[in-house]
């Protein structure tokens, strides 16, 4: 039944449904039990399903992931909460060397259906290590699937799909959008739902293809509206899956628009924008009217809260990227793909 829920509540509803559907689903994390998680995503679940299935862990992320590997080895379907993006790195070996490789290592004998929920990205004025976009690390790792949700309905449905998937899935939650409200049916039939690894056109357009995911989908939609005021038709694609990437959906769009802008919060260097721009260039070079443009975070450690507005692409920077791919502004000397700095601000604002 459809109800109006915030993205965080939709995640809660998705978890509740997944746990009700499958008695092997277990939740592990810090503060997820009595407290219900620092963002309340697991609120009420321990009360409903008991402390054996909603487990407060000691404060050790590698321990949490390693425990999840062992639980899955035994036949369970663990869903792990990493409290904040910057805390996941101490679990890197268990994710990259253990979780991602075990199915291959054992020639398929062992499957590890582990879901790792990670609140990601910035824009909330947080302390250091609470605003990071680590998607490239995980998307680079064979054996993992990586997804990112941008709206409440996907929060519920894709989370259930991730939990039901027999592969390990890194599930990114845009913490800046936890309070975003929308109509949600937490009980949709997963056999009828759009596949988890399919990108989605969230606003149709003809002039420019704008690809993004997670917390910036909303900003990209705002940019499309602003651009339309100037007579520019922007097609916005929510990638949803970051590994694998639905290049076919992007390619189909670029073949019509001839122009590609990729937007993400994570640093530009070896980020997802590079992969998408390269792949689209390989696949439909002759359809491109301009070199792809990337609008991304800078290649710096995530800055303190008072400076984060310079790190996270905003409406103006996205519109600047749209202008540049349309050849409406001069590309600064020395740049081959266009600058993402503030040197061309003002355009489209």
């Amino acid at each position: 039944m459809t109800q109006t829920l915030t993205l965080a509540k939709a995640l809660n509803a998705g978890l509740r449904r997944a746990m009700a559907d499958d008695p092997t689903v277990m939740l592990l994390g810090e503060d997820i039990g009595r407290l219900g998680g620092v963002y309340r995503v697991t609120d009420g679940l321990q009360e409903q399903f008991g402390p054996r299935r909603v487990v407060d862990t000691p404060l050790a992320e590698s321990g949490i992931l390693g425990t999840a590997v062992g639980l899955a080895y035994r036949g369970y379907r663990p869903v792990v909460e990493i409290q904040f993006d910057g805390f996941v790195y101490v679990a890197f070996d268990q994710i990259v060397s253990q979780l991602a490789k075990m199915h291959k290592r054992t020639e398929g004998a062992v499957t590890l259906p582990v879901t790792i929920r990670i609140p990601v990205a910035g824009g909330i004025g947080a302390a250091e290590h609470h605003s990071e976009s680590p998607e490239a690390y995980f998307a680079h790792t064979a054996g993992l699937r990586v997804v990112s949700v941008a709206n409440p309905q996907d929060a519920a449905t894709v989370l259930r799909q991730a939990i039901a998937c027999d592969d390990p899935v890194v599930f990114f939650e845009p913490k800046r959008r936890y309070h975003l409200k929308g109509e949600v049916d937490p009980d949709v039939d997963l056999t009828l739902a759009e596949p988890m690894d399919a990108a989605r056109v969230v606003a149709p357009g003809d002039d420019v293809t704008l690809v993004t995911f997670g917390s910036l989908v909303g900003t990209a939609l705002d940019a499309a509206v602003a651009a339309s005021d100037e007579g520019i038709s922007v097609e916005v694609i929510d990638l949803r899956s970051l590994s694998p990437i639905d290049h076919a959906r992007v390619e189909a769009s670029v073949r019509r628009t001839g122009r590609l802008v990729v937007v993400h919060e994570g640093p530009r260097h070896v980020g997802l924008g590079a992969e998408i721009a390269a792949t689209i260039t390989e696949r439909c070079f002759e359809f491109l009217e301009a070199a792809p443009v990337r609008v991304t975070g800078h290649d710096v450690p995530y800055p303190p809260a008072r400076l984060e507005s310079h790190q996270v692409p905003d409406l103006d920077r996205i519109l600047d990227g749209v202008d540049r791919v349309l050849g409406r502004v001069a590309v600064p000397a020395g740049s081959t793909t266009g600058s993402t700095t503030g040197s061309t601000t003002g355009v489209g604002a």
């Binding site: 277990m26 487990v55 425990t67 590997v69 639980l71 080895y73 035994r74 369970y76």
Partner: peptide, 14 residues
């Protein structure tokens, strides 16, 4: 060693 702990937790859950 952590995999053993997880497996053992699964034994308890079973």
């Amino acid at each position: 060693t952590l995999h053993a702990v997880g497996y053992g937790l699964g034994v308890l859950a079973d």
